[in-house]
């Protein structure tokens, strides 16, 4: 499914909609090059699900993962940009964290660890403020 996102607000609205559908055990994968708006989406998603519009969402690039307590249980926000493959993930307790909600930037690093039932959102730039989202997965839920 392809969805144009003509403004930041449209990106935030999509993030809020997905946040409303997310449940423990879900994996939400955010693809796209540097600057495509993955972190923007992740921040809007976390602010929607915590119902805290001012929630601080620092980049998890340095620590690889930041965990948030939310009404939907813990959410683990990953940024795998610095990794070259999935080796370090197994030791980060990836398998255990999958029982919660995981939100993953740079999911191509997951390789064989990619959860089969995940929701994939690929963001591409269509203009300075506008993006296109290509959404794969969750067909019954998103219909």
């Amino acid at each position: 499914m392809r969805q144009p996102l003509p403004s930041r607000e449209a990106t935030h609205a999509l993030a809020a909609r997905i946040a409303g559908l997310a449940r423990p055990g879900d994996a939400i994968l955010l693809e796209g090059p540097l600057g495509a708006g993955k972190s923007e989406f992740a921040r809007a998603f976390l602010r929607a699900i915590t119902q805290d519009a001012a929630l601080e969402v620092p980049s998890p690039t340095f620590t690889l993962v930041q965990t948030y307590e939310t009404p939907q249980g813990p959410i683990h926000h990953f940024d795998l940009w610095r990794l070259t493959g999935p080796e370090a993930l197994e030791e980060l307790g990836w398998d255990d964290l999958l029982q919660d909600i995981v939100l993953v930037e740079w999911p191509d690093r997951l390789g064989p660890l990619t959860p089969p039932e995940s929701l994939m959102i690929r963001l591409t730039e269509s203009g300075p403020e506008s993006r296109d989202a290509t959404i794969t997965g969750w067909e019954p839920r998103l219909r």
Binding site: T63, L64, R82, L83, T84
Partner: peptide
């Protein structure tokens, strides 16, 4: 060689 700090390593 990993392009930065890898926590478990």
């Amino acid at each position: 060689q990993f392009g930065g700090v890898v926590p478990e390593i």
